[in-house]
Amino acid sequence: MTASNDWGGRNCPPWNCFPVRPPTNKGGRSLLRVLLVATLLTVLVVACGTDSPPTDVGTNLAATATPDVASQPTPTLEPTTAIGPSTTLAPDVTYPEGILPVRLKIPTLGIDTDTIELQLSGPEPEVPEDFDQAGWYRETRLPGEIGPAVIAGHIDSKSGPAVFAKLNELQPGDAIFVAGEDGTTVEFEVVRSGQYPKGDLPTEVFGFDLPVPELRLITCGGTFNRQTGHYDDNYVVYALAA
């Protein structure tokens, strides 16, 4: 019954090994998609080998330039201070800043809702009180930063559908927009989904797939257990910066 890990296990670094995505007739050939395909081909050719050619995804999307370390003067620093916490190591490498999310839009599902801040840490992660709202976990990355921002929303209330009732209808290629308090919007593109038993969310849900801005949407799935008053599973949609 589980739909987790649609593309099977992964045994190489996420930035060298991206899971195969099913063909989709949506969307165009974005730069990201081309890069993903290139990465995939690389992976297939070298079978995730230890001496696989480096992927350029990170360099192209995450940073403006690779510093020419070779041309820098040979460090002659004292061993104990050579690479201290405030050392300016790479002035010409920049990473994108994220946005504090205030609104989530998923046109294909007709979702256009406020997002609040939630706390992930603790015995039980916070969830929105309002069944029509979504919430961003503040311990995860800001949308637009490298790595996954995680947003949760209810699948239903006691009486009917809630904001993420149709999350499982999302297909690879579908667009998700997150708007920040500064008015800027980050666009993501759905790539896959997964379903996991409650309380056993793997690191995969919160960790990197690729060194690009990522988004994860969490709601409930599986069987509703009337004894506990909860669904047995969590359903997760994985999206990457479009």
Binding site: P148, V205, C220, F224
Partner: peptide
């Protein structure tokens, strides 16, 4: 990455 240490209860049935 920060991880959840409990279930994300996003459904009421």
């Amino acid at each position: 990455a920060a991880v959840a240490t409990g279930p994300v209860q996003t459904g009421a049935g």
